[in-house]
Design a protein around this nucleic acid. Structure first.
Lengths: 333, 333
DNA sequence: TACGTTAATGTAAACGGTTACATTTATAAT
DNA sequence: ATTATAAATGTAACCGTTTACATTAACGTA
C-alpha cells in the first residue's frame, strides 16, 4: 500500500500538500493539485483510516449497542442505522448488551478506546453516568427509548402511550368488553407507557378490573403463561392487548391450546409491528412502530452531531400506526 | 486520558518498559513491573486501541459481511460471531451486502483501510479476486456457504445435500407420494445442493416428475407463488419440500388460501430452522442448520488464524437436523 | 519605495503506541 | 581471570496521517 509520502515524493511536493489536496483544505495551486492527483491515481493511493483516526480521534465508526440482535425488533433498527452510516461512508460496530448495564459499560469503555465517532444505544439499562461521561468527552450519543430525565442527549422513541390507547380503542371498537393487558417489565419506560395508555382508555369502561393486567417479559413464553393466569381469573376475557408482539404471539399460542378461537371468542392485539405478525395464524393486529425509520433517524441525528460538533438534547416521539388484521376482526354482521 | 508516556514518567521508567509489562512481552524485573502497574492503576491508564492498531496493523475488529440482517437467518449467525468475538475482547463491524458483489468489494476495501483483523463473509456473491487479494495481504478470511473451488480459505457450511435427503425421506416416510420442491436461486450453492439431494431421493419413486420442481427466491412471497404454479400443474401434490423456511412459510400461506389442509392434504417441510418455524400454524417441520453454531465456529476459526498467523483452507460441513413438527404429521391411524 | 496581505508550500511536531537495536549488568562456563 | 550469554532496560525509529507554524513569493496600496 502506498503511503502519503510515496505520493508526495512522486508528485514532488510535501506530505502537507498532499494532505491538503486529499482533504480539500486550505488553498493549493490547481496545477500542483493536478500533479498530486495524478500521483494518487498512479499509486492507487488510499489514505489509511487508522492513521487518520489516530490524528483526528475519529475512526469513521459508529457504535450501535442494542440488547440482542436475536430479538426480532432489532434487525430493522440495525439496518436503518447501517444504511445511513454506509451512505455517509461510515461503518457500524454492533454490540449485544443483553440489557446488562455492565456489558454496556464495558462496550462503551472498549469502543471509546477505538475512537468511535459516536454511539447509538438502544437500551433500557444504560446508566446515566455512562451518558454523562461520553458527553463530557465530547463523544456524541443518541438514545433509543430510554431517557426520561436525561436531557443530556437526543432521545428517540415511539409514542408508546398513544399507541396503547390506539390499541385499546381499537379493541373496544371491535366489540370487546373485557380487555386484558399483558404488560412488559416495568423498569422499561416503553412498557410503563403502554400500560398507562391502556389504563387510561379502559379504566372508565364497565368491564374494567386491575386483575385484568398481567406481567410478562416481552417474550413469547411469558405471553403464553400470562394468558393462563388471566383466564384462570377471568374466563370471560374477550380481548387481549399485549405489550409487545412476542407476548401477543405467545398469547395466540396459549389460546389455540385452550381451543379458544381468535378472533371470534377473543381478539388479540400486539405492539411493535415486527415481521412475525404477518405470518401468524390469524395474522396479528399490531401497533406498528417505524422501527427501520427509528434507526435511520438515530443515525442521522448522530451524524449531524458528529459533523457539526453541536450536541442537542431533543426528545423525539415518533408516531405509531395501528395495523388492523385478522386477529381482531369483528365477525361480519 | 493518560498516555503510556505519562505512565513511564510516573513509574520512572521508559515507555518501552511500560509497553513490556502491559503486553507481558520480553522479560522485565518483577519489582519494576510492580512500579509500572502501580502507575497504571494510579493514572487509570488504558492503552489506546487506535495507536496500537496503527503500530500493529490490527484494530481488534472483525468484519462480518452478510447479505441482510433483516433476513431472519442472519441474526443468529451474527450473534454467534459476536459472542465469540466479545469473549476475546474483539468487536464486530457489521455490513449488509444485499448480495451485491460490488457492495461487498466496497466494504472490503473500506475495512482493509481500517485494519480489521479479519473477515467473515456470508455471501453467495463474493468474488474470488476479493478473497485472493485478502489472502495475499495476509488478512484472514472465513467464508460461509460459498467456496466450491476456493481452496484459498476456510469455508463453513451445512451439509445441505444430506439435509435435503433427510427432508425428502421424511416426507416419503410420512406417506407422501408426489413431493414437490421449491428450489432457491441456483447461483447459490446451498440451493443447488438441496435440489440435488431432493432429486437423489425422489428420482426413483413413482410419483417423480421434473415438473414438480419450481424455482423461488428464498423469500416468503416467491414460496407462495411457487405453490400456485405447482398446483396448476399438479393438483395432486401431497408434499412440499421448500428450499428454505421462508419459502415454506409462503407455501403454507398459499395452501391456506386455497383451503388445502396442512398436514392432512399436503405436508410441508422447510430448511434452515429459523425461529419463525415455531410460530406458524401448523408449526413447520424443518431441516435445522446450527446457525448460531456456524457463527461461533466461523469466529473461532478466524480468531485462530488471526492469533496464529497460519491460514488454513479447511472445508467444514456441519450436520443438520430434521425437526419434525405438525406440518408433516401423519394422521393417527 | 516600503509594507501589510494573501496565496502556496514546506517543516516538523503531534497523535499514542510497538519494537529493533543498543547498552549495561549479572551469571555461568572455560 | 576471561569471555560468552542472558536478563533488564533505554533510545529512537516507525506506523501514516493531520496541522500549527514558518517561509517565500506575489500583489495591492500608501
Amino acid at each position: 500500500m502506498a503511503t502519503i509520502r510515496d505520493v508526495a515524493r512522486l508528485a514532488g511536493v510535501s506530505v502537507a500538500t498532499v494532505s491538503r489536496v486529499i482533504n480539500q483544505k486550505d488553498s493549493v495551486n490547481p496545477e500542483t493539485a493536478g500533479q498530486v492527483l495524478k500521483a494518487v491515481e498512479q499509486l492507487q493511493y488510499e489514505p489509511n483510516a487508522v492513521a487518520r483516526g489516530l490524528a483526528g480521534k475519529k475512526m469513521g465508526i459508529i457504535a450501535l449497542i442494542l440488547p440482542d440482535i436475536l430479538n426480532p425488533f432489532f434487525p430493522a433498527l440495525a439496518r436503518g442505522v447501517e444504511d445511513v452510516a454506509h451512505k455517509k461512508g461510515l461503518t457500524v460496530i454492533l454490540g449485544n448488551s443483553d440489557d446488562l448495564g455492565l456489558k454496556e459499560s464495558s462496550y462503551i469503555k472498549v469502543l471509546k478506546k477505538k475512537y468511535v465517532d459516536g454511539f447509538i444505544i438502544a437500551s433500557n439499562t444504560i446508566r446515566e453516568e455512562d451518558v454523562e461521561s461520553l458527553r463530557k468527552e465530547g463523544i456524541p450519543i443518541v438514545l433509543l427509548d430510554r431517557g426520561l430525565n436525561t436531557t443530556a442527549c437526543p432521545v428517540i422513541r415511539s409514542n408508546n402511550r398513544e399507541g396503547a390507547k390506539l390499541a385499546a380503542h381499537h379493541l373496544l371498537g371491535q366489540g370487546c368488553q373485557r380487555i386484558a393487558h399483558i404488560y412488559g417489565p416495568q423498569e422499561f419506560i416503553t412498557a410503563r407507557e403502554r400500560l398507562l395508555g391502556y389504563e387510561e382508555v379502559v379504566q372508565g369502561s364497565k368491564g374494567y378490573s386491575p386483575s385484568l393486567m398481567e406481567p410478562g417479559h416481552f417474550d413469547i413464553d411469558s405471553g403464553r403463561k400470562a394468558v393462563e393466569q388471566l383466564f384462570a381469573r377471568h374466563p370471560n376475557i374477550d380481548g387481549i392487548f399485549a405489550g409487545n408482539d412476542l407476548m401477543a404471539i405467545g398469547a395466540l399460542k396459549a389460546l389455540r391450546e385452550r381451543g379458544i378461537q381468535v378472533p371470534e371468542q377473543v381478539k388479540v392485539c400486539g405492539f411493535d409491528g415486527i415481521g412475525l405478525t404477518e405470518i401468524t395464524e390469524p395474522e396479528l393486529t399490531t401497533v406498528a412502530q417505524p422501527i427501520y425509520e427509528m434507526g435511520r433517524l438515530a443515525a442521522q441525528i448522530l451524524l449531524d452531531e458528529i459533523e457539526s460538533g453541536i450536541s442537542g438534547n431533543s426528545l423525539i416521539e415518533l408516531d405509531v400506526t395501528l395495523i388492523p388484521r385478522k386477529s381482531t376482526m369483528k365477525e361480519e354482521s
